[in-house]
Design a binder for these strands. Structure first.
Lengths: 168, 168
DNA sequence: ATTTGATTACTAATATGTGAGTATGTCAAC
DNA sequence: GTTGACATACTCACATATTAGTAATCAAAT
């Protein structure tokens, strides 16, 4: 009874399967990142910022699948390392704009050949047709499946007095 | 020149795409896990241990994509919470066997209906055919693409004196 | 002008990920 | 039987993830 049909898990663990697939793929790139001392998250951010002059942290977070709390630390360390710059938006002091530096653009340019070579090897291993199909299926998934975000609780009214001020 | 064709990234960021896909999927399950106060990693471990009487940490790590250092803490907390038990293998004192408890089996049984209902909703959204194709492609990827593991450096000979002893 | 609600980036506490290295135990070669 | 390579679980330092909640700001309704 405690093992009746309704109480048993029938489906495979899809989030785990996707995680394993990602691990298989990224394991081939990790040596390239490690040799430059750059983390996976930092590289994701560099890659998206290569395409545009600047982005806000919130936008980067959506594109790179990095949550806001993580983003704070990552951006801080990347700024320390000279990989990017942050500045307040003129007309809206809440917002921040993040841009790459010459240093990080140079780094990306240096890494690009190895990265691309690895992608070519992967496509040789998996087949070009498979690669295309995989991308098609992922795009379809993004189109059909919304990100289910739990709405934040309405936040109780608290005193809001002396706290540390914001940096930047 | 610094932006020449060879130094530019042509391929889409596949590890990121897989990460985003996983995030889309798991966001639909997260509320179920949160309502029970169980983490994603803990749930992965419970799921694989449901299928067998016991597994070693190393095996769990491979199945659940959890590294050895992470595993130590996760297992420790799960044992504290009464979700599993650890015991040494008789004939090989290096190895450990991990099993679920009645408590965690009951938890899984309680969650199963909601988990399964969510999978059914996902398949409605994406289509049964897509789901099948996705699983096929992931299996193909697992078959063709090896996990590239960086071999550990040969470890220099150091003094090895007084250190903390192992627990359990 | 003040209040209210929403937005944005952030902090805090805890759990997990990653890379390097270590303690202990096993086993085969010597 | 001791040595040395190896295997297994572990520790440490640090980076990131997750959940909850806060500070500062903006905008619209009062």
């Amino acid at each position: 009874m405690s093992d009746s049909k309704a109480r048993r898990l029938q489906h495979r663990n899809l989030p785990l399967l996707l995680l394993q697939a990602r691990e298989r793929v990224i394991s081939h790139f990790r040596p390239i990142l490690n040799s430059r001392g750059i983390t996976e998250q930092q590289w994701r951010i560099v890659r998206v910022l290569l395409e545009v002059p600047a982005l806000e942290p919130r936008q980067i977070g959506e594109l790179c699948a990095i949550s806001s709390p993580s983003m704070a630390g990552v951006l801080e360390r990347m700024e320390q390392a000279g990989y990017l710059t942050r500045r307040r938006v003129e007309h809206d002091q809440r917002r921040v704009l993040v841009s790459l530096t010459r240093k990080s653009r140079r780094l990306a340019a240096e890494m690009a050949p190895e990265i691309e070579a690895t992608y070519r090897r992967l496509e040789e291993t998996l087949g070009a047709e498979f690669s295309n199909q995989l991308h098609s299926m992922l795009d379809y998934l993004f189109e059909k499946l919304p990100v289910l975000e739990t709405p934040p609780a309405p936040a109780a009214a608290v005193d809001r007095s002396e706290r540390r001020s914001r940096r930047l």
